[in-house]
Amino acid sequence: MTDLAKNKNTVKLSHAIVEQFIEQIQSGHYKTGDKIPSELELITQFDVSRSVIREAVTELRSLGFVETRHGIGTFVKEQPDAQSFLLSNASLATLNDILSLLELRISLETEAVFLAAERRQPQHLEKMQRALHDFQQHIHSSALDGTVLADYHFHIAIAEASGNQYFVDFLKYLGEKIIPRARLRSIELNPDTRLDYLNNVHLEHLNIFKAILDQDAALARQMMRAHLGKSLKKFKS
């Protein structure tokens, strides 16, 4: 079976689990604040692989149904009354979908980082530094989720520094699915490629952070475009 076929099967299995959890949350089986079963318990319950469970939990987190508290577990979040629009991981099952989302991010985040460089405050810089530190700490970890979450937090911190809440709300709505390697597992399958890729991503993040720190808005925009453009080019190849 090819890597692409395996990825499609994983998506189908994980989405079925996601739909079951959403139904249980909406029916009241799981209430706000309830802890969902552990990863190992879910593997046994659904008789699937660890990667399928991680995919499902990432999906639920992205949609805002659960939140993960490191070292404690994953808990059901309070749900809004209604959502008129949903962009689920199921709608990002193909490479073209992921490339389209990257194009959207380029148009959105190059402006957000420009404003962030002009408006950033000490608390924003501190949050970016924490995300950079977390990312670096997880580069050599065997689990991909740590760098995905740190990457996501770095971009959210930039959006917050822009002073425009709409940037923040939209990126938070999209969730961790804005990070393309959260959807494509080919990097994770090759440890050597993964390490080089993550080190390059970290360097690009550092360059963006330095431009924001220096309040060089034009350079920050250039660095963000280059950063996201490299991802776009990589996943096109």
Results as ranks from 00 to 15, higher is better:
residue 54 R to P: 03
residue 55 E to N: 15
residue 55 E to G: 06
residue 55 E to M: 14
residue 55 E to Y: 15
residue 56 A to M: 04
residue 56 A to G: 13
residue 57 V to T: 13
residue 57 V to S: 07
residue 58 T to W: 11
residue 58 T to G: 11
residue 58 T to V: 12
residue 62 S to K: 04
residue 63 L to W: 03
residue 63 L to F: 05
residue 64 G to P: 07
residue 65 F to T: 05
residue 66 V to Q: 10
residue 67 E to S: 12
residue 67 E to W: 05
residue 67 E to R: 15
residue 68 T to M: 09
residue 69 R to T: 13
residue 69 R to A: 06
residue 70 H to M: 08
residue 70 H to G: 03
residue 70 H to C: 04
residue 71 G to L: 03
residue 71 G to T: 07
residue 71 G to R: 07
residue 72 I to E: 14
residue 72 I to T: 11
residue 73 G to E: 06
residue 74 T to L: 04
residue 74 T to A: 04
residue 75 F to W: 09
residue 76 V to D: 02
residue 77 K to S: 05
residue 80 P to V: 01
residue 81 D to L: 12
residue 84 S to T: 08
residue 84 S to P: 01
residue 86 L to A: 10
residue 87 L to I: 12
residue 87 L to E: 04
residue 87 L to R: 12
residue 90 A to D: 14
residue 90 A to G: 06
residue 92 L to K: 06
residue 93 A to P: 08
residue 94 T to K: 12
residue 94 T to S: 14
residue 95 L to Q: 14
residue 95 L to G: 09
residue 95 L to I: 14
residue 97 D to Q: 10
residue 97 D to W: 10
residue 98 I to F: 12
residue 98 I to V: 15
residue 99 L to C: 11
residue 100 S to D: 13
residue 101 L to W: 11
residue 101 L to H: 10
residue 106 I to L: 04
residue 106 I to H: 03
residue 107 S to K: 09
residue 107 S to Y: 04
residue 110 T to G: 00
residue 110 T to F: 02
residue 110 T to N: 05
residue 111 E to H: 12
residue 112 A to E: 03
residue 112 A to S: 05
residue 112 A to I: 04
residue 114 F to R: 11
residue 115 L to I: 00
residue 116 A to E: 00
residue 117 A to H: 06
residue 117 A to W: 08
residue 117 A to M: 12
residue 119 R to V: 03
residue 119 R to M: 08
residue 120 R to V: 11
residue 120 R to C: 05
residue 121 Q to K: 15
residue 122 P to R: 15
residue 123 Q to V: 12
residue 123 Q to G: 10
residue 123 Q to M: 09
residue 123 Q to H: 15
residue 124 H to T: 00
residue 126 E to N: 13
residue 126 E to S: 13
residue 127 K to L: 04
residue 127 K to R: 14
residue 127 K to T: 02
residue 127 K to D: 00
residue 127 K to V: 00
residue 128 M to V: 06
residue 129 Q to L: 14
residue 129 Q to K: 15
residue 130 R to C: 02
residue 130 R to D: 05
residue 130 R to N: 06
residue 131 A to E: 01
residue 132 L to G: 05
residue 133 H to E: 14
residue 134 D to T: 09
residue 135 F to D: 02
residue 136 Q to M: 07
residue 137 Q to A: 13
residue 138 H to A: 15
residue 139 I to T: 10
residue 141 S to L: 11
residue 142 S to T: 15
residue 142 S to R: 12
residue 142 S to A: 13
residue 142 S to M: 13
residue 144 L to K: 08
residue 144 L to D: 13
residue 146 G to K: 03
residue 147 T to A: 10
residue 148 V to E: 09
residue 149 L to Q: 13
residue 149 L to M: 14
residue 150 A to Y: 09
residue 150 A to T: 10
residue 152 Y to H: 14
residue 153 H to L: 10
residue 154 F to T: 03
residue 154 F to W: 05
residue 156 I to F: 02
residue 156 I to T: 05
residue 158 I to W: 00
residue 158 I to S: 02
residue 159 A to V: 02
residue 159 A to I: 00
residue 160 E to N: 08
residue 161 A to G: 01
residue 161 A to P: 04
residue 161 A to N: 01
residue 162 S to L: 05
residue 162 S to N: 01
residue 165 Q to T: 08
residue 166 Y to H: 08
residue 167 F to A: 00
residue 168 V to Y: 04
residue 168 V to T: 05
residue 169 D to T: 05
residue 170 F to C: 02
residue 170 F to R: 01
residue 171 L to D: 01
residue 172 K to F: 00
residue 173 Y to K: 12
residue 174 L to S: 07
